[in-house]
Design a protein around this nucleic acid. Structure first.
Length: 259
DNA sequence: CTGGGGATGGGGCCC
DNA sequence: GGGGCCCCATCCCCA
């Protein structure tokens, strides 16, 4: 099962937010995280160097409100252009995908539309003289926008929400940088866990054997080793494993059903 | 080869 | 809405 189950797969078109604003973040980690590391290795002046600071993320709130004020309406078809739905103004976010709006002036008020232009887009109010024209416009422009698909410019992933996309983009920009070794991470708590590899801190202890771990997940995996019946069981031979990866290996080697 | 530890990635949830 | 934490998952390495 893919972990990124919020990732949307291959819509025909998608929005591209202002990446210059999304990606220029660098997280400063508290110097206290390094406090157990020898000062000779971590000069205090380096811990909070100004060189790694970038301006905070700034989004136009009016623009964001447009993102969140209307839900995707997949049921709405080109055959019902009169349905009331709020148009999404993404012109300041994308300069690549609004061919429909580039080809003509902004939609004029209904009163000024000619009688021939009787097919009107419910999303942006643009009018067309033929149904085919309206259909093409919606296919290229408004229908794709109404799906609210947020795509990553670094990879093929698409997300249903801007917040999910912003979180994903951090995995490309890696704004959290370790001052000790320079390794970069997508999120501060990932960096915190990494810093423990430098400090040797292991705050998670096993109650059975007192063995300590730097990561809670690794302690959880370790606890499985104390259990006679492990969490992950082979459906064929009923053998149990402490880790999913071990079960997968077992299945890949071809379980015969006999232990 | 198998089991286990270490390190890390990423979405969800809660505050 | 963002940050911190949780949980799950995966890869790599080693005994």
């Amino acid at each position: 099962m893919p972990r990124s189950f919020l990732v949307k797969k291959h819509f025909s078109a998608s929005k591209k937010p202002n990446y210059s604003e999304l990606e220029s973040q660098t997280v400063i980690v508290s110097p206290f995280l390094y406090e157990k590391y020898p000062l000779s290795v971590i000069p205090q002046s380096e811990i909070l160097s100004s060189g790694s600071y970038y301006p905070p993320l700034v989004w136009d709130t009016g623009l964001l409100s447009n993102f969140f004020t209307s839900e995707p309406d997949y049921k709405q078809s080109a055959a019902s252009p009169s349905e009331d739905s709020k148009p999404l103004d993404l012109t300041s976010l994308s300069s690549e995908e609004d061919e429909g709006s580039k080809t003509s002036d902004p939609p004029s008020p209904a009163s000024s539309a000619t009688e021939a232009e009787k097919f009107q887009c419910g999303q942006c109010n643009k009018s067309y003289s033929t149904f085919a024209g309206l259909s093409k416009h919606r296919q290229l422009h408004c229908d794709s926008q109404s799906r609210k698909s947020f795509s990553c410019k670094y990879c093929e992933k698409e997300y249903v929400s801007l917040g999910a996309l912003k979180m994903h983009i951090r995995s490309h920009t890696l704004p959290c940088v370790c001052k000790i070794c320079g390794k970069a991470f997508s999120r501060p708590w990932l960096l915190q866990g990494h810093i423990r590899t430098h400090t040797g801190e292991k705050p998670f202890s096993c109650t059975h054997c007192n063995r300590a771990f730097a990561d809670r997940s690794n302690l959880r995996a370790h606890l499985q080793t104390h259990s006679d019946v492990k969490k992950y069981q082979c459906k064929t031979c009923s053998r149990t494993f402490s880790r999913m990866s071990l079960l997968h290996k077992h299945e890949e080697t071809g379980c015969t059903g006999t232990r």
